[in-house]
Nucleic acid binder design. Sequence first.
RNA 1: CGGAGUGUAGCUCAGUCUGGUAGAGCACCGUGUUCGGGACGCGGGGGUCGCAGGUUCGAAUCCUGCCACUCCGACCA
Length: 519
Amino acid sequence: MQRALSVSRVTGNRGTFPDWYQAVVREADMAEVSPTRGAMIIKPWGYGVWERIQQTLDRRIRESGHDNCYFPLFIPLSFFAKEAEHVEGFAKEMAVVTHHRLKLIDGKLQPDPEARLEEPLIVRPTSETIIGDAFSRWIRSHRDLPVLINQWANVVRWEMRTRLFLRTSEFLWQEGHTAHADAEDARTETLKILEMYREFAESVLAMPVIAGEKPENERFPGADNTYSIEAMMQDGKALQAGTSHYLGTSFAKAQNIRFQDEEGQLSYCHTTSWGVSTRLIGGVIMTHGDDDGLRLPPAIAPRQIVIVPMLRDKPEDAQVLEYGQALVKALQEKFALGEPIRALLDTKAQRSADKRWNWVRRGAPIIVELGPRDAAGGQVTFMRRDALRDGDKVKSQAMAREAFIEAAPALLAEIQQALYDEAKARLDSNIRSDIATFDELAEYFGAAPADEDEGGVFKGWVRAAWSRLTGAELEAVEEHLKALKLTLRNVPMDQPETFGACIFTGKPGVEEILIGRAY
RNA sequence: CGGAGUGUAGCUCAGUCUGGUAGAGCACCGUGUUCGGGACGCGGGGGUCGCAGGUUCGAAUCCUGCCACUCCGACCA
């Protein structure tokens, strides 16, 4: 590990990176495991983050011409049979509804055999099939195109092993689905969305990513091309944070999505689909969290400035509260990052010290402590969550009330930028491009010291030239990589002019690809 | 589904080997002293010891079966 990430300050114990992650999810009040296998309960603070993600991304989706709509949670089984690759990709993780009634049989409540469904229903793992079916009815003429829609929904994928936010059997996401008259239009859409995701991840989540195309074997089932944004977590692993697929005409053919062009000819549409999920929240935690808990970028913090009044059950409490209420009101009238500041006066009946640390753990960007001295002197004492400590000491600063109110918008923007800069520096300095052969790759990633259970050794990624392998050759390489727990992440969009030899075959390289361990 | 490990209070865990009737710290409730850097004293509430059988006078502890979770594989946004 490049950085000592223990769970010491959060739980009082040392542990691995996954232990730390779970501790932060719990201590920051983000989510908890539910009685339902593999599914999570997203708590108010965590859901608040998701709502911020929804609001900011939804605006971008709308501004780029897409409309929201809603399709059913259940999809008839037969819909999946239409696209062979697609069904194969998802068949192993589908939840199936087979009955519509329960009955007491031998004292046990169970599905009533008489209430078996004629055709089983699938709880959607993704909605290409049912949306494509609608497209086939909606689209008749080239004048109907393009169709640009999006839905915010929950989906279910029956995963073997789950982890809060990163992989849960049910998760929340948005899925965009579009249909176009030709390949060029659809490809443009696919890349436009990829760029939208990149910009969103970097400017809203403060999470630097690398946008690129997935190699053949990592494609979405049924897609012609799959693009992703990949983020680097603090243990050096990659997190696929968003995907955008060009589906060609395969779904259109499977579902008969056709239109008449200007000449009266019938043609198949070219379709795309794209999505980001609650996994983004896991990415935010593993990008910005520290030993004190979560650090939230102000753009997605449900509360950006939290004011903790130092109350002591004394007469001057009233003045402190009054002073705090006025401060919240003044802050709410200010705009930061394009929106009214989200400020809160925490009046919960709890020790001030506890409240303060709870907000530290939850990652509120600015935590203000207001005491009688502040109220009397017209000043504000606060700490920045992005730079909480100076050594072991908590760093706080004081400002005149008016100056603080004026400075708040810029301060929040500065925190947003600081979190991004920190993550960006980590990403940039941990991609090695001086590894040219498979042996070197194996040596670099393989030499993991025995303290693997201390969270592993931070290795980051390798960026190397390759000859865009496909088919059996690609599979063979993947097998070798698997032994090292490595995967091909993506081929970054920005590529140099010339390339070295392929890291796997020694043949002339045609592009550069990212290699790393992944979630 | 394969390999390993773990299930005891909200959390972290001790107790299990060697059977004797449920513990600690933190959290929670009451109270007093405190309070501007994760307070302290006193008092208190909370657990069918993962579930089901079995052995035994007696089971958290021994035996059998099952379930769940964690980590490593396989799968994946």
